[in-house]
Write a protein that binds this DNA or RNA. Sequence first.
RNA 1: CGGGGUGUAGCGCAGUCUGGCUAGCGUGCUAUCUUGGGGUGAUAGAGGUCGCAGGUUCAAGUCCUGUCACUCCGACCA
Length: 569
Amino acid sequence: MRFSRLLIPTTKETPNDATLASHIYLIRGGFIQSVGGSGLYNFLPLGKKVLDKVRAVVKDELDQAGCQEVSLSFVTPASLWQESGRFEKYGKELLRFKDRKNNDFILGPTHEEMMVNLVRQSVKSYKQLPLNLYQINLKFRDEIRPRFGLMRGREFLMKDGYSFHASQEDMQREFALMEETYKKIFTRLGLEFRVVEADSGAIGGSGSKEFMVLADSGEDTIVVCDSCEYGANIEAAVRKEKACESEAPEAVFAKFHTPATETIEELSKFFHVDPYYLVKTVAKKALFDEGETKVILFALRGSDELQEVKACNAVNANDLVDISEEELAEVGLVAGYMGPTVVPEGVSIVLDNTLKEASSMICGANEKDYHLIGNSFIGVEADYHDLVAVQEGDLCPCCGEPMRYTKGIEAGHIFQLGTQYSEPLGANFLDENGKSQPMVMGTYGIGVSRLLAAIIEQNHDDKGCIWTKESAPFDLQVIISNIKDDEQVALGEKLYEGLKAKGLDVLLDDRKERFGPKIKDYELLGVPQAVIIGKKLQDGLVEFVSREGLVKEEVSADTILDVVMQKVN
RNA sequence: CGGGGUGUAGCGCAGUCUGGCUAGCGUGCUAUCUUGGGGUGAUAGAGGUCGCAGGUUCAAGUCCUGUCACUCCGACCA
């Protein structure tokens, strides 16, 4: 391709709202263009090219693993989502609209319903299973706060795959195959990543894993162990049981006057007791379908923090929101003095697993200025769940070594769905015994457009992008420094044609520009290698440059073609 | 959702407080000349519903009312 013919609107200036390297360089390099803000982007020729290359890697590996590509209708009738129950449950991120006949439609953020619908119409027998179907199409999520360019846009390109099986075992086999396939994809794209245990979120199901591209700018906190393979999203991370070094406070059950002692810290000081022996009671308002709400108290040890996603899952709510002191008062609770042992009617309690065997605990009395001491939960029937947010330094559940936090970009997510969608949507098949059964499903996603951002987050310097081999928009850039020098032009053209003939994708910078802009653009665009034809051509020399580290090397003009072929492969 | 901020040329901004002639600046763009290894210099140009609607006034980018959009921060503790 000739630079002079390409639409690559590079700029010197950084867009105002861009803070992330990927956002800055993708815009400055003319890969993408913002569409009136609000998380919508056009892909310009260069961006589209990279997108296609990433997409091709994804497709190639999936097809090798036996998956089949389809393309689902972009607009989805709401009736399908009503069947599965997600029309209500999915929340405001689902874009809903009506057609001229006043029928409801949605733009799919993910397509379980659509795919199940496709399959239930054409698959009737166990002989047709298993199946793994995927598509690489636009998705729309009406994000609360789109930001970071392609990282969290509202419209984005996602690969979503769905597998259908006659048994749980077969689904798990496929799940493992997809994990391996995803690892191959991310490795081919040159990414440093980690596979971690994850929360299943709005998709539902159990046993899900996320593929996290490691980057400081990542929006997800992941807990990793350096001594073994364990890694988990903070939303799902577990730890080895934690012991407390200080002594348990000896006390019989009693009510204690504790004025102006409303926080764990104050309480700990007041009683001279380790927070481990205090009950932290967090009130949240849980939102359910059809606008139903309920006040829930989550109780855990004072030394622990509540993990909100775990809490939300524990009560099967759509969302948890904060609650004001006024609202608390309305249901008969006193902020600062709440406890799980005596609660007003209509308020639910969920206890953390670590309280199951706890005794000598201090908790709020649900009465202003009073706490209860000497509480024991041993043998108490209650709703126990894991509610704890794992902290840095907590011990690994697998090997017992301390774990640490790191940041990741969620680039892939695979789920074991089971029959969660096939059952309500009636995707059944006849088994060997002629018995009707719901299909067992798995679902697998990759954020393809987000991957572009992730690649740049991991591969850039202060000058611009550094694309990895399989994602680069071109294999090589040939820069003619002075377009008025006939010799330079002649060599540039010869190299360009010669390398093209050998199958390389070459970008020839033949613009009538000075050297400065040309080299700056090269650095910004991030093509892995370049040949610079300049002044030294008089002495029969050209330069070979590697974008990574900007290493330059002088090469004889006569042998440059062979040298390039050698270096690129 | 809660709280700030901003809408003026493709992009970045000034002008608004204190209303006044033809709305400016930087960059980018076009043409010619110049320069030719790190965004060269000069001259001449093209480019505007001042977010939208209504109001006050002899006169509104500027004042008033409404509205829309975009953007930043936060979502902890109980």
